[in-house]
């Protein structure tokens, strides 16, 4: 592999998991700009943090293959979670929401189990969608 290709692949290993996890797993109905700003920050620590935990618990390797392996698992796992696993977790999700309501107060999710936009403060992120529409 050439130096340029290795550098590009390394950059992708850092950024791709953050992009996929944000868009498929975490994202509320945010604007692209707002999502991109979050992805920019997540890219800086998502893969290193997970590598750190894996290295300390199971001795995960800190090398080229380890980096790309982890990124691939995160990307494919996020897509599988979003498209295959999550839709089948309805009952479990409602049960978890109920527990969440008991210990943490009213849920921020709507009746269909989707995340609601923050309403609590006048300056919350709901404004982003307004100004960018």
């Amino acid at each position: 592999m050439t130096d340029g290709a290795a550098a590009l692949l390394t950059a992708v290993d850092f950024v791709a998991p953050a992009v996929v996890i944000w868009l498929f797993v975490l994202r509320r109905s945010e604007s692209l700009l707002s999502s991109s700003l979050a992805i920019a920050g997540l890219s800086a620590f998502l893969v290193p943090s997970l590598t750190f935990l894996l290295n300390r618990t199971i001795g995960y390797p800190l090398d080229r293959l380890g980096l790309t392996g982890l990124a691939a698992v995160l990307v494919l796992g996020s897509i599988a979670w979003s498209k295959v696993i999550l839709p089948r977790l309805g009952p479990l999700r409602k049960f978890a929401l109920r527990i969440g309501e008991i210990v943490g107060g009213p849920t921020p999710l709507d009746a269909n189990g989707r995340t609601r936009q923050p309403q609590e403060t006048s300056t919350a992120s709901s404004h982003d969608d307004t100004i960018l529409k």
């Binding site: 130096d3 390394t10 590598t51 750190f52 800190l62 090398d63 080229r64 980096l67």
Partner: peptide
Amino acid sequence: YPSLFDLSVALLVAGSGA
């Protein structure tokens, strides 16, 4: 001591060979 910056640099070096 954990240092995510240094780990990130190590990973970037390991990945790119730079």
